[in-house]
């Protein structure tokens, strides 16, 4: 427990010293989302219709941007070896790394979501549902993405490969999350989609650290 807390503290401190890690994905997200109305024109009806898809696609890509460096620095400076040799279970420490990734990429997106909802003039209902889907969905993006990042950690220029591995796995999240927001806009019930997202969340948060730590051990 002490080791996990220390790792959490260390990684947050490192992020704080290297603010690009948190700012870059966020700016990327902001840019993608604001460029869309310029591309498709300021027709409010069209924007409202495509908003859930655009916001969620941008969230996927922003997550992906920060995934590449999730384990790479630790591998190159020997910290990963030290983590694997700690008496604390490696899967638990890997889980902490995933948590940090979510804190620096997923959480800011959730906090900013009302702003984007306004940008696309979503209704109040849909804005709430958007925040809930992001809350349930972004941890899954971090957890599933970490498996891909662990598999490709020792490959040079693995960005494209990482995207090829991870993006197909994001499909269910995209479908249910964007579907829920669209349904909320149309005034339909969204409980079904949210349950699916919650189930995916529980599955990935419990199992992904184990898979990730196993993949990392191969690369050590």
């Amino acid at each position: 427990m002490r080791a996990s807390l220390a790792l959490l503290k260390r990684d947050l401190l490192l992020t704080f010293r290297n603010p690009g890690l948190i700012v870059n994905p966020l700016l990327f997200y902001l840019l993608v989302v604001t460029l869309v109305p310029l591309g498709v024109g300021a027709n409010q009806q069209i924007l409202q219709d495509i908003a859930p898809g655009i916001i969620w696609l941008a969230a996927l890509l922003a997550t992906l941007l920060a995934l590449d460096s999730l384990f790479r620095n630790d591998l190159h400076d020997g910290s990963l070896e030290q983590l694997a040799l700690s008496p604390t279970p490696f899967a638990m420490l890997t889980g902490i790394k995933i948590l940090v990734h979510w804190l620096i990429t997923g959480l800011p997106l959730i906090l900013l979501s009302p702003l984007f909802a306004t940008l696309f003039s979503l209704s109040a209902d849909a804005t709430g549902v958007l925040a809930i889907t992001l809350l349930l969905g972004t941890p899954v993006l971090s957890a599933v993405g970490a498996i891909g990042a662990a598999l490709t950690v020792s490959i040079r220029n693995s960005g494209a490969l990482l995207a090829l591995i991870v993006l197909p796995l994001y499909v269910p999240i995209l479908i249910f999350a964007a579907g829920a927001v669209s349904a909320a806009q149309a005034g339909l019930p969204v409980t079904g989609q949210l349950y699916f997202l919650a189930a995916l969340l529980v599955l990935s948060v419990t199992l992904a650290p184990i898979a990730t730590s196993a993949a990392l051990k191969i690369n050590l």
């Binding site: 080791a3 807390l5 490192l14 400076d77 910290s79 604390t88």
Partner: peptide, 24 residues
């Protein structure tokens, strides 16, 4: 090992605080 497992962004003290907590 060959690599020291220290973080360049952190001070020696911060590196040691982490190392001692990690090893228990």
């Amino acid at each position: 090992g060959h690599l020291h497992g220290i973080k360049l962004e952190l001070s020696p003290t911060e590196n040691l605080v982490f190392a001692s907590a990690l090893h228990g």
